[in-house]
Design a protein around this nucleic acid. Structure first.
Length: 497
RNA sequence: GGCCCGUUCGUCUAAUGGUUAGGACAGCGGCUUUUCAAGCCGUUAACAGGGGUUCGAUUCCCCUACGGGCUACCA
């Protein structure tokens, strides 16, 4: 995308601290960051905490942590330092919305004096009642405007006497309002269907509509990239920009992330917290890559892009118009691709942080983890995968130590010979796959056996499973002594049956 | 109910006023093989429907259907 406005790009990600970073919001944050970095602009983190009832303790820190973990890092706004303390950086603060309340209040009052807003004294009961009646009659649910007609002097007197009130926007009653969305093109609304929005609540805090608009202006935001759910309130925001004569930013409304049933991605149906994906062992790079390609695609001939490549290729105009189902299967595949690309050292380090085991033999654990590296989809299941190769108590119940129609006696004969062979090998040779493989294969050749009737019992003896990595890999990770122990166990089991 | 937005394989998507409509995941089949996984190769599968415009529409326009969002003193 060229920068058609030839201006400094300033974008913001402005979540509410309601507990965690929603995965859809991670994508919104990412797209903002990609746009900013693509044009060497600024990416700002602002926290919208004007709904005092929904604030969750630690919510801001959590958002910062998730952004940091995924590498979507603002260069202005709210930060979290190493000690876990929040601080602000930038010339356009405060970046915590509640700290701007005075400005919001002043601006709301100014709108009232400009006759662009008015005091409203209607009770929530009255409004609920009104809405119910309208719904019953299948009429559009809108404020009846009773306070809109109030004499301004009277209204002010009531306010001064301490009567509970809100401030509502005094929107036009007819005519059209249009704006140009970078993604969708021209979007038009009829003013008559847009309600007089509350901009200051009775608790004295502004609503999103005033606060976000005011802050975007204050912070000189050039492009507003936000979720599609905001399309229908954009006219209200435009009204405020125009009332004050502020410069209007470019808008781009992002398609939503969807559940399997195509409704808006929700906690009910899907995992939505970024931190949970990370906890489950998805790599931040893979998660970011995946989420970036949900609703936007630079070429479609490639699936794997680094963060820097995304920055390079990003363009808002190429963002899709329709929502995207959050498809876990593809995420799993992508993550496994990223895991396979990991350098050995890093892979082991990560796998170890997820692995729960009582075993203390590090070299053994490492060999086991390396063996599993192309079986791991996400690190969250590493313990499950490794369990059977770290815990050597195998009872062989429910698995067959015999290959196809092989008899127990035959399998016993093979295992006994293999045991003898292993005993004759040095521990070093057992630890080397090529050595044990060639020794075993020549034994098979020598005796005129088949691979199946020899290798199957061996492999099941070593793994305790009918499906597992190859016996040579298993010998190598266990080493001579453990392997011999397992063969002995298997033989006992065969003799007893 | 009203308003707004959307609609290419099951899913994520590409491309185009003239293509055998491309790729990826999943599925299926094969190779490899002692089994599984991985890998490699192959394969099934889509332009929502109807009208226009046009020599020609998946592509442009309209209608319908379907889906979604909004319709709060939540964001």
């Amino acid at each position: 995308m060229k920068n058609p406005f030839n201006e400094h790009v300033r974008v913001r990600f402005a979540p509410s601290p309601t507990g965690f970073l929603h995965i859809g919001n991670l994508r919104t944050a990412l797209y903002n960051e990609l746009l900013a970095r693509h044009f060497n602009g600024d990416f700002i983190l602002r926290i919208e905490d004007t709904d005092r009832t929904r604030i969750v303790e630690g919510g801001v820190e959590n958002i910062c942590r998730s952004l940091q973990a995924t590498g979507v890092i603002p260069n202005e706004g709210i930060w979290l330092d190493e000690k876990g303390e929040l601080f602000e950086r930038g010339d356009y603060g405060p970046y915590l919305q509640s700290a701007c309340r005075e400005r919001h209040l002043e601006q709301a009052e100014k709108l009232v004096t400009m006759d662009k807003a008015y005091y409203c004294f209607c009770s929530t009961e009255h409004l609920d009642d009104l809405r119910k009646k309208q719904q019953a009659k299948k009429q559009p649910t809108m404020y009846d405007g009773s306070c809109r007609k109030l004499d301004p002097t009277e209204a002010r007197k009531k306010v001064e006497s301490g009567e509970s009130h809100v401030i509502r926007l005094k929107l036009p009653k007819h005519g059209l309002i249009s704006f140009n969305d970078i993604i969708r093109g021209k979007v038009t609304f009829d003013w008559s269907v847009i309600d007089d929005q509350v901009i200051i609540k009775s608790d004295g805090f502004p609503t999103y509509h005033l606060a976000a608009t005011s802050d975007d202006n204050h912070m000189a935001i050039s492009h507003v990239l936000r979720g599609e759910e905001w399309v229908s309130s954009t006219p209200k925001h435009l009204f405020i920009y125009e009332a004050f004569g502020w410069k209007i930013p470019q808008f781009a409304h992002l398609p939503l992330l969807l559940n399997k049933d195509k409704s808006k991605l929700s906690k009910r149906q899907s995992d939505v917290a970024t931190e949970d994906y990370l906890k489950n062992g998805y790599l931040p790079e893979a998660l970011l890559n995946f989420v970036a390609l949900l609703g936007w695609n630079p070429s479609a001939e490639r699936e794997i892009y680094s963060h820097d490549e995304l920055v390079e290729l990003f363009s808002v105009e190429k963002i899709n118009h329709s929502g995207a189902v959050f498809n876990l299967e593809k995420l799993d595949w992508l993550n496994s691709q990223y895991i396979k690309q990991l350098p050995k050292k890093k892979y082991l380090k990560l796998a170890r942080t997820y692995l729960e085991t009582a075993i203390t033999d590090d070299a053994y654990i490492d060999r086991c983890l390396l063996m599993l590296s192309d079986r791991i989809v996400r690190f969250g299941n590493v313990t499950d995968l490794a369990k059977d190769f770290l815990d050597l108590k195998k009872d062989y119940s429910g698995v067959s130590l015999t290959w196809k129609k092989q008899t127990t006696e035959d399998a016993t004969e093979k295992l006994e010979a293999l045991k003898e062979l292993l005993e004759s090998l040095s521990a070093d040779d057992v630890a080397k796959m090529e050595k044990s493989e060639s020794a075993i294969k020549s034994l098979i050749l020598e005796r005129g056996w088949t691979n199946g009737e020899t290798l199957w019992p061996l492999r099941v003896a070593l793994s305790g499973q009918e499906k597992s990595p190859s016996p040579f890999e298993l010998l190598a990770i266990y080493g001579k002594d453990r392997s011999l122990g397992l063969l002995e166990n298997a033989l006992k089991h065969l003799r007893a049956s």
